[in-house]
Simulated scan of single mutants.
Amino acid sequence: MDSAQRQQLLAIARQSIHHGLQHGRPLSVNAQDYDESLQQPGASFITLNLHAQLRGCIGSLEAWRPLIVDVAENAYAAAFRDPRFPPVNDIEFPQLEYHISLLNPAEPMQFTSESELLAQLRPHVDGLILEDKGHRGTFLPAVWESLPEPEQFWQHLKLKAGLPADYWSDTLKVSRYTVEEFS
């Protein structure tokens, strides 16, 4: 993404939340009105912060709709549908900080033990997707800032997915991805 495309994505995220405050739904975006690169399928996560604290984070793990649409929909969802927070209100809106993560396709990891998995992790580079027996969770690479040790990162991801911190199973699937981040 070049600087102009990044600015377009940030503007769409803001506009979608503003539209949501006024109309109760995401901004309707016609992908054809934007750069060809923004029309391509893309997966994004939108992280909202308020006073340096997380205020919402929602995204897509797989590219299945135009990136510009994905950003508009996920920005709205981060502001109004993140179950950890009440919906964003008019007072908070002007103070929101926007962080966009564009996900590269996830790659399955190969391992036979937890120690082997941990040895493969690349702190501050990898985002992870954990899946097992109906449980699923992901951490963006930015989470390494608050959980810098691979064991800690991994245990908290299991908890986020609704599994015990010491959970292990031979059917566990883990994929990793990288992101392009900007704000």
Rank of each mutant, 00 (worst) to 15 (best):
S3I: 07
Q5H: 13
R6M: 09
R6V: 00
Q8M: 11
A13E: 08
S16T: 12
I17S: 02
H18E: 13
G20H: 04
G20A: 02
G24R: 06
G24S: 05
P26N: 11
L27E: 05
Y34I: 03
D35A: 15
Q40T: 11
A43D: 09
F45C: 03
I46L: 14
N49L: 07
N49Y: 09
A52H: 15
Q53N: 05
R55F: 05
G56M: 14
E62P: 00
A63N: 08
L67K: 13
I68M: 11
V69N: 14
N74E: 09
A75I: 00
Y76W: 15
Y76H: 15
A77W: 11
A78R: 01
A78T: 12
R81V: 05
P86G: 03
P87M: 06
Q95A: 05
Q95W: 00
E97V: 08
I100H: 01
S101N: 13
L102M: 06
L102A: 00
P105E: 08
P105Q: 10
A106F: 10
E107H: 11
E107G: 00
M109K: 00
Q110C: 06
S113W: 15
L117G: 02
L117I: 12
L121S: 06
L121I: 05
G127S: 09
L130C: 11
L130E: 07
K133Y: 13
R136D: 04
P141S: 05
P141R: 00
L147G: 05
P150V: 07
Q152A: 12
W154R: 02
Q155T: 11
L157A: 14
K160G: 10
G162I: 05
P164C: 03
A165R: 05
Y167A: 04
Y167R: 05
S169I: 12
S175L: 11
E180S: 08
